[in-house]
Write a protein that binds this DNA or RNA. Structure first.
Lengths: 88, 88
DNA sequence: AATAATTATCGTCTATAGGCGATGAACGAT
DNA sequence: ATCGTTCATCGCCTATAGACGATAATTATT
């Protein structure tokens, strides 16, 4: 994995809310934006922005289905991250 | 480990230069600021700033010895980080 | 005591992050 | 066709990041 890509993922994880989002996504496997908005004390636009960052880093992917978007963690990317950390 | 602390570490790793610094510190065990400055195409103040961020996150510690400061990776913190990643 | 070497900090600049409300776009249901 | 739902995006604001050169602070050496 590219070091730039790695830095992007770390950066994406570099915010408490985004870590919690990742943990939540892993726990319940897949999730819709509104559900996450309900959990956190932030506006819909703020959560959407966090999800966008996570998506851009590659650690999260989102599938549009009708009016909703289903977000989930990309296990492949997560595993690559785990492997990298192990080399440290 | 506190989630705020975790986010700080991820944030600290969220920059290509800082990832490379960490890798270098692990490879050669301990290192002085000037040596890192020689490796990267950045000024001494910029590298010093990166090292400060890494130190503040806890992933790196620095010991002052005379006019030099010896930086090294805190293995305990690194292991905690590894353990956390494994739980994801 | 003066100088050289090493690192940290300050001030400055531009760019990005992080929050918000308001609006836009896409879809389902009525 | 209209309306409600859901999400993304825009514009705005303030705070922080990231780079630099210049300067301060500390120490070893001469």
């Amino acid at each position: 994995m590219d070091i730039e890509q790695l830095a992007k993922i770390f950066k994406a994880l570099g915010h408490p809310t985004r870590i919690k989002i990742i943990e939540h996504l892993i726990n319940i496997n897949t999730c819709v934006c509104g559900e996450i908005v309900d959990i956190f004390p932030y506006s819909q636009s703020t959560i959407s922005q966090h999800l966008k960052l996570l998506k851009e880093s590659g650690i999260v992917c989102g599938e549009v289905e009708g009016p909703k978007t289903y977000f989930c963690v990309d296990k492949t990317v997560l595993n690559t991250l785990k492997q990298y950390i192990e080399t440290l």
